[in-house]
């Protein structure tokens, strides 16, 4: 799983992988429609992303699509040192 990353002073970051939704804004013929933030949908592909992670003493990079072929539970929580 994921290559190890060196711990430095900069915070490692990740983000969405693939299509950049910002790039689509360029299309000139589109009528002005207010952008509606949409939640992901059941039955549809989960958007791929990368994220730095801590796993058993190491800092690694994780990409969601590495887990194709396995069941994944992706959990978000408000913050470390709270409950889950």
């Amino acid at each position: 799983m994921g290559e190890e990353i060196k711990a430095g002073c900069a915070r490692p970051t990740g983000g969405p992988v693939g299509e950049n939704p910002e790039a689509k804004k360029e299309t000139p013929q589109q009528p002005l429609i207010k952008e509606v933030k949409s939640m992901v949908t059941v039955g549809k592909k989960a958007p791929d992303f990368t994220a730095p992670a801590y796993l058993k003493g190491k800092f690694i990079n994780v990409q969601l699509s590495e887990f194709l072929g396995k069941w994944v539970v992706l959990c978000f929580y408000p913050g470390d040192f709270t409950f889950v």
């Binding site: 059941v42 039955g43 592909k45 791929d48 969601l64 887990f67 396995k70 994944v72 992706l74 408000p78």
Partner: peptide, 17 residues
Amino acid sequence: VEARGRFIIDPDGVIQG
């Protein structure tokens, strides 16, 4: 911060719940 979101993703990468 992030809400307590939990996503079940199947082996095809599809969100089931």
